[in-house]
Each structure stands twice: as structure tokens, then as C-alpha cells.
Design a protein around this nucleic acid. Structure first.
Lengths: 204, 204
DNA sequence: GTCTATAGCCAGATAGAC
DNA sequence: GTCTATCTGGCTATAGAC
């Protein structure tokens, strides 16, 4: 007789929940739809995750923990500033091409409940800007890059990498691109375009 | 005897709806909450706008038409490339500081129903990139800026200006900023920071 | 552990009085 | 044009059989 939670069921619920929540958000998602996607029925969702809120939090946490370590890489590795910018841009864009809903999901849910961030800032992999700040200051003092606040540079790096995915439908409209492959190609060009842009912007 | 719709009521409904929809989105908003904010009752909402979807569309359209003309300015004015970048950045950021929920609202609802863009691309003030494209090409050919695709430059301008508002809670977390005024000050610095960054990035 | 059936609530929408 | 009262459906959550 089985007495423990079925790990297969639990996994397929979580995967189904990710897929639905990431596309429709907390408010738009329906437990029924998640159950259907997981190939089980509603009651089981509650058996495994008690309620919608807890299921949502499991999904959100998982999404957040996929992104955070990559940001940490920019901020806390020992690489040079140039290498960090190049490496992050390259890795991040190819990662997101495979998870197109992630950034919008996170950003959006955080806007609906900003206090949610608090739950994560104590986590081990939560990005911390101290080291990056120091590195930027040194580079400025050594005359290697033009004067810029570390915070502003950090925001610029995030913006140039993340925004095109978050705002894809809007940008597609403005650029008159109705073909997904065309947009995807633009994104792939950005793996080099973005780091060139930033590095050029930092020249003295 | 009054026979026409009361313009005051209609306006206060629309204003209330804007405030609620822009913060909570289509799915999260409640008709009751909108009615309360407008100081009337639910039935009147339906009297004026028939149903939630139509009320939402009125709000969305109004939001979109506030943003679109500003983008159009970047794309279709006769100013030089440099002036466009400076002007847009300056205007846009100060505009958004007064409408902090707008960009996230638009981006997010467009992600939920991307086909919505279609409703607007025939509008008079819908941004068109043709002229901008030509201008960038000329500048590149004349050796005034380094080679860059107009599409990529456009995306970069949008990203650097809009993203910091869309992702405010996330960035506040990463930068350990819990004070709204501190963040706002960062944003105000960007009115010059962003255009410097872009113009530097374009130097040959 | 998984299901069916249903409780209980809440939101959008309508009827009808004033 | 504005209100109160109510219908109707859909959704989360639980009870209880297997």
C-alpha cells in the first residue's frame, strides 16, 4: 500500500502549474485548467498543495530561483567587468529564449505584491550588488571606463537584456514584425549586439 | 428630465476604472471595487459600459493612446537622431514618473492577449518605424554613428527608458533600495544618464 | 493516493422600483 | 440616470467513497 505522496504526480502538478501560472498569472489561472494539464482532477491539487496560493508560491519560487543565480553571476563572480557583461548577455538571452514567459511572470507578480521580494532577499542565491559596485568604482577610478554609477549600469544591463522579452508583443507591433521567427532572430543577434552596445557606451 | 448619459458620472467611472485596472489588471480587478472608487454602485457600471470587457477596453485604449504619441515623436519627427534620443528620454521619464503603472499595465495585458495590438496598428498615432530606420541608415552611412540596425537601436532606447519602471520592485530588491524616494531619485538621474549612455554607445 | 459529488462563496450581470 | 435586490454561473475548497 502506498502511503507517501506520489512523486510523479507531484512533479506533473508542479509542471502543469508552472505552465498555466506563467502564462496567465495568479488571478487568471484556474485550478481546473491546471488539473487538466496535469491529467488529474482538482481535488488532487488540494491534496498536494492545500490551496491555490501555496501552489502559486511554489511555482513563483521555482521561477525566481531559476533566474536569481544567473544575476548573481554578474554581480559576484571574479571575472572582469567586460567578461561579465559579455557572459551574462550571452547566457541570459539564450536561457530566456527557452523560457519566454519567465521574466514577465516574475515582474508582473512582483508588481501586484511588491512585498513578495522580502521573502527572497535572505536566500543564499539572492543577488547582492556590493561586489559589482566596488568593481565599477575601481574601473572608473583607473580610467578604464567613463564615470557611471554602478546602480545605473546594473539597471542598464538588466534593461537591455530583459526588456525585449517582457515587451515582445508591444515591440513586435511597433516594428511591424508578425512572424515569430523574425523576432527570435532579432533576439539572437542581441547576444552580441547588447554587449557591444554596453561596452561601447562605457568607453572613456 | 435628464435623458442623456451624465458626463460627470461617465468620467468618474472611467477614472476609477483606470486606477483599478492599471494596478490590478483585467483579471484582478473587481467591478465592485471600481464602483466604490467611483462613488456609485455596480449596476451603473453596466448601464454605462455594458460589461467588464468593454470597460476594460476603454481603459486600455486610453492608456495606449497616452503612450503612443510619445513614441511617434521619436520615430517620425524631423529632429536629428541625437535630439530625438535626448528629447524622448527626458520627456518619457518625467511622464512616467507621474503615471507609474501605465507601462506595466500595457505590457502585461498585451502579453495576455497579444492579438490586441492589431486593434491599434491602424490608428493614426500608431508608431511607425520607417522614417526612423531611414534616419539611422543615413547616419551610419555618413559615418556619424557606428553601424547598428535601426530595430536594435529602437529596442535599446525603449528598454533603457521603460524597463526601470516596469521592473521597479525587482530592481529595488536587487539594489537593496527600500525607500521610494531613493528609487525615484535614481529615475530622475536617468533623464540625462540614459541619453548619454546611448549616444556614447553610438560613437564610431 | 485518487476519484466523484457537492458545499459555499463571490463576482458579473440583470430586473425593476424610483 | 441611479438605486436595491436578486439571479446565475463559475470558482475554490472540502467530504467522503473507493
Amino acid at each position: 500500500m502506498k502511503k507517501e505522496k506520489n512523486i510523479t504526480t507531484e512533479t506533473s502538478i508542479l509542471n502543469a502549474a508552472k505552465s498555466i501560472f506563467e502564462r496567465k498569472g495568479m488571478d487568471g489561472a484556474r485550478m481546473q485548467e491546471i488539473a487538466d494539464a496535469a491529467g488529474i482532477n482538482k481535488a488532487l491539487l488540494h491534496y498536494y498543495y492545500r490551496n491555490k496560493q501555496l501552489l502559486f508560491e511554489a511555482v513563483f519560487k521555482s521561477a525566481f530561483l531559476k533566474l536569481a543565480p544567473q544575476l548573481n553571476e554578474v554581480l559576484n563572480s571574479d571575472a572582469s567587468l567586460n567578461d561579465k557583461i559579455k557572459g551574462f548577455t550571452k547566457n541570459y538571452i539564450s536561457f530566456i529564449i527557452n523560457h519566454p514567459y519567465l521574466p514577465n511572470f516574475i515582474i508582473n507578480e512582483l508588481n501586484r505584491s511588491p512585498e513578495f521580494v522580502q521573502k527572497f532577499i535572505s536566500e543564499k542565491h539572492f543577488p547582492n550588488i556590493q561586489k559589482f559596485k566596488q568593481q565599477v568604482t575601481e574601473n572608473v577610478n583607473d580610467g578604464k571606463i567613463r564615470p557611471i554609477k554602478a546602480e545605473q549600469l546594473f539597471i542598464n544591463i538588466m534593461a537591455l537584456n530583459i526588456f525585449p522579452f517582457v515587451a515582445a508583443p508591444l515591440l513586435k507591433g511597433f516594428l511591424s514584425i508578425d512572424n515569430n521567427d523574425d523576432y527570435r532572430q532579432l533576439m539572437e543577434e542581441r547576444t552580441t549586439e547588447v554587449s557591444n552596445f554596453i561596452i561601447n557606451a562605457l568607453k572613456v
